[in-house]
């Protein structure tokens, strides 16, 4: 099972993302944006990693979403292959319309706004560990294929624009009904609260990740590759010192899910 980690100018998480994918048993390589796009069809799945593609010019993800490789990814997605966009990768998938995948650019990832007790307490870039609650049933989505509804997964986030917004009033209802909401930000006990710091960036309904209607394309703001080894965990987490340097962290479940999804699809 071979995956491509797609690299744009300004991407900065490709190496650790490939390492994390390999730790879950996937093989793969980093795929530079100006390689012939048709070579992408040789791969079984795709990850668009985090970073600042094209310097976030215009809007985060806007320029990369117009690259030829994205046209190829659109075709591969239509074929049912899994695509996971992480952080800037999520932004690119939203800008390209692959997410939420309803035919247009239906949501945006806007600047973070941290609100507590009715007051804005902070704006912009924020880096911290967070807990995600899995909102969909098992096997709903490629990147959370192995997770049960209600499972909690810890991983860090680091972004300035992860605040999911929409002008379509019916969209949220549809995303919820179709189980396209994959993760929500919650506290360590699994409680979702629409207040900073639990809702860390002001996102609608505390949404951290969504998938397309078919479930093969997933976009998430937090970084599972930074939580794929136990030693990466924060010091207050009892799992941190467990096992050897290869021991898994919670984020590895995302890559293991992708692997399982590819296996099942075959």
């Amino acid at each position: 099972m071979k995956i491509a980690v797609v690299q744009f100018p300004g991407t900065n998480c490709e190496h650790e993302t490939l390492v994390a994918a390999r730790s879950a048993g996937l093989s793969g390589e980093i795929f530079r944006w100006n390689r012939p796009a048709e070579e992408l069809s040789d791969f079984d799945g795709y990850i668009i990693p985090g970073g600042f593609s094209y310097q976030d010019r215009l809007r985060a993800g806007a320029i990369a979403s117009k690259e030829p490789v994205m046209e190829s990814l659109r075709e591969e997605a239509a074929d049912g292959k899994p695509i996971i966009g992480i952080c800037n990768g999520f932004q690119i998938l939203v800008e390209s319309g692959l997410l939420p995948g309803l035919g247009g650019v239906d949501v945006a990832l806007a600047q973070n706004v941290m609100v507590s007790k009715g007051e804005i307490v902070r704006r912009g870039f924020y880096c911290a560990w967070t807990t995600l609650r899995h909102e969909a049933p098992p096997e709903r989505c490629s990147g959370s294929f192995l997770l049960k509804k209600g499972d909690l997964v810890r991983m860090p986030l680091a972004h300035a624009e992860g605040n999911l917004v929409t002008v379509d009033e019916d969209l949220m209802e549809r995303l919820n009904e179709e189980n396209q909401v994959i993760f929500r930000y919650c506290d360590e006990g699994g409680w979702v609260e629409d207040e900073f710091p639990v809702n860390v960036n002001g996102s609608l309904e505390s949404i951290a990740a969504i998938c397309n209607p078919e479930g093969n394309v997933l976009g998430m703001m937090p970084h599972p590759e930074r939580s794929s080894f136990a030693w990466q965990l924060p010091p207050t987490d009892p799992g941190k010192s467990a096992g050897d340097m290869g021991s898994p962290g919670p984020g590895r479940r995302i890559f293991e899910s992708m692997k399982r999804y590819i296996e099942v699809r075959r």
């Binding site: 998480c13 870039f125 924020y126 880096c127 930074r226 080894f229 990466q232």
Partner: peptide
């Protein structure tokens, strides 16, 4: 201040600002 900094990129961080 340090919440503005990406202290996690590269995935190598074991102890971050504020922890020690």
């Amino acid at each position: 201040i340090y919440r503005y900094y990406d202290t996690e990129v590269q995935g190598n961080s074991v102890i971050r600002p504020g922890e020690a």
